[in-house]
Design a protein around this nucleic acid. Sequence first.
DNA 1: AAGTGGTCTAGACCACGTA
DNA 2: ACGTGGTCTAGACCACTTG
Lengths: 255, 255
Amino acid sequence: MEHTDQLDTPYVLDIDLDRDSAIPLYRQITESMIAAIKEGTLKPGQRIENEVALSKRMAISRLTARRALQELVTAGLLLRRRGAGTRVAPPHIQRQLALTSFNDDLVEAGHTSHTEVLSYQVQFAGEKFSSLLNCDPTDEVVRIKRLRSLDHEPLSILRNVLPSDVAPSFSDLSEHGLYECFKQAGVNLVSAIQTIGARNATAEESHALNLDSGAALLTMTRVSCDDRGRVIECASHVYDAARYNMTLPLRCEHI
Amino acid sequence: MEHTDQLDTPYVLDIDLDRDSAIPLYRQITESMIAAIKEGTLKPGQRIENEVALSKRMAISRLTARRALQELVTAGLLLRRRGAGTRVAPPHIQRQLALTSFNDDLVEAGHTSHTEVLSYQVQFAGEKFSSLLNCDPTDEVVRIKRLRSLDHEPLSILRNVLPSDVAPSFSDLSEHGLYECFKQAGVNLVSAIQTIGARNATAEESHALNLDSGAALLTMTRVSCDDRGRVIECASHVYDAARYNMTLPLRCEHI
DNA sequence: AAGTGGTCTAGACCACGTA
DNA sequence: ACGTGGTCTAGACCACTTG
């Protein structure tokens, strides 16, 4: 066809790889492409240089080039079809990058966030928490209750139960987020399972969050584990639904 | 140490690979391991044979063995640490497998589900939907409103907007789920982004769902695209929060 | 027919954790 | 010191899509 659309001429990523870096080659490529997508150099629908060409031009093996592109497909930033090629995903779909701390998202959006520790309680796990945390009933656990405010307005009530040996101290928790504390303690969270629901606020909750009684709350329970297979945290949070929602990417895989 | 824990002696997966199958070798391995985890042969905390041993025993390359294990790590079923080995994740974390149709989950749990098409409307996209669906304002779109009931009790109101050329016919939709229709039409959904929130039911909604006025609803909006980069569907659903919640795995990656 | 992604091989060196 | 996973190479053949 005569009509050569700009989107159909493969985009050539022009970067120099640092082969002495501790950062893997494939990651150097993905990071650059993410940056290009973020800054708008790489537009939705744009075709990407194919694996073989990329590997030859960069003087890397095809597997490394492929892995770089594959990571971006998994991240939802690229779409690919056998025989047809690789393109940048439409903007509607582009998965936001880090799903780390909820705090970060808020602060990044120019808001101020503050978290107050309402209670910090040490006790035995007992029947109730031992099954939840996959520990002995006689193990020590820490129960935390916090109030998180956004722009000085209460937004959510956060309840956590943690094994005592990985729990941050009361003063650490007062100054830093829970996930920040985990990181500093060398706890490496890798996997979690969340259940999201909704219900009407109780009288106590609506008072604490400064809401009308019966206001809609978004509820989230989560169990997280680290790379050693230890259950690190059980969370049970409620949010003022009028001011908070969750955005989650969804990959339709076939495993 | 003298104490040889059963969990510390590597599990050996005993299967025969079919090298002529259309199913990739790595997937034959992952499927077998998933089956072993499901049926309880492979227990949480159990150590897994390492990559090199697995590849030698199966007479496959290390990369193939690695890929099989890596898929299970991504699925949240295995946990691994460099230098330490690979183990089955604790049961609390094990990600349920297919995140396909919500219908499937319900029916699988022994419930009966029925979906009634309340309205099926064809119109121009206009300003409102053209940006949402990433199409021209003059393109045809189909707007669908459905009522889904669980065990003959109304559970949710489902609203979708779709490009006319991928939308199922009214009669198809009346008999099959939306995702089933996509599959039959050769539309390959690969990526979506969801926003989950909550609010109080309106008078109309509480009437349709047979709820008290002001009852808490779980809300979900979703934009899905196929492997060609076309936006296929915009959904805006509300659920009776007293009878429905969503469980989502969370992988803490570092991309 | 040509181009593209999907799978696979048989090696190699390195970084990290554990003992 | 050793075992483990993490990265990388330089090839190969095949399946699928498009012109």
